[in-house]
Nucleic acid binder design. Structure first.
Length: 207
DNA sequence: CTACCGATTGACT
DNA sequence: GTCAATCGGTAGA
């Protein structure tokens, strides 16, 4: 598959901007079992020290070390016994990242079905841990260079959908705090998005 | 749709 | 040692 790999410069920017622009890109994974992956349809931005929800907001640890490294590398961590994939953004030393929350399966569907143990398309890659299982991503890819274009990378979609998709925003999922800023971005109405697939309806007051 | 609960790891007392 | 966590599967309404 011809797909230009995203450059280091792409990630070397504000995480919210990178998150927004990652929608529609292809996340690809190649193993001896074959190629698989799909279109990114849901992401969340985590904004370094100024973001209390960011794993790096309380300093560097063994777990979050990859976020302190150069942009364009993966930050893979485990939560509730499951793996999640992030792409590191901004300059080295600024620990920010974009969580890849869901992709739309495009290639290697059978392989992903095997890894997930289900044929239900909507359950293959909807959710950060599900997509990691479908793509066989684990701790060994923590710190992996996503711009190298092998094993695990993100590239342009050579055949983007005819109709431009609409980007929706919301608060991030699974967080008890830091809901003020809308740092979750997703393709509106896409069935492979986790949680709400439409933008939240505006409210003046919430109790 | 909602609610519950298993599960692993790393951080902190 | 204890606990909270960027979750997902399943049961039940």
């Amino acid at each position: 598959m011809q797909s230009s790999v995203l450059s280091r410069e792409f990630y070397h920017r504000d995480p919210a901007l990178v998150a927004r622009e990652l929608l529609g890109k292809l996340l690809l994974r190649e193993t001896s079992a074959g190629l698989c992956g799909g279109r990114i349809v849901e992401v969340e931005a985590y904004l370094s020290a100024r973001d209390p929800a960011c794993h790096a907001s309380r300093g560097q640890t063994l777990r979050n070390a990859a976020m302190f490294g150069p942009p364009g590398h993966a930050y893979v961590y485990m939560i509730h016994a499951r793996w999640c994939l992030n792409a590191v953004t901004e300059p080295e030393g600024t620990p920010s990242a974009v969580l890849i929350r869901a992709i739309e399966p495009l290639v290697g569907v059978e392989l992903m079905q095997q890894r997930r143990g289900t044929d239900i398309m909507r359950d293959l890659t909807r959710g950060p841990a599900r997509l990691c299982e479908a793509l066989a991503i684990d701790r060994t890819y923590d710190g992996w260079d996503l711009t190298a274009g092998r094993e695990l990378w993100i590239g342009e979609d050579p055949e983007p959908p005819e109709r431009p998709f609409q980007v929706a925003k919301s608060g991030r999922i699974g967080l008890s705090s830091a809901q003020r800023r809308l740092l979750r971005f997703f393709v509106a109405g896409n069935p492979f998005v986790s949680g709400r697939t439409q933008a939240p309806t505006k409210r003046r007051d919430t109790t």
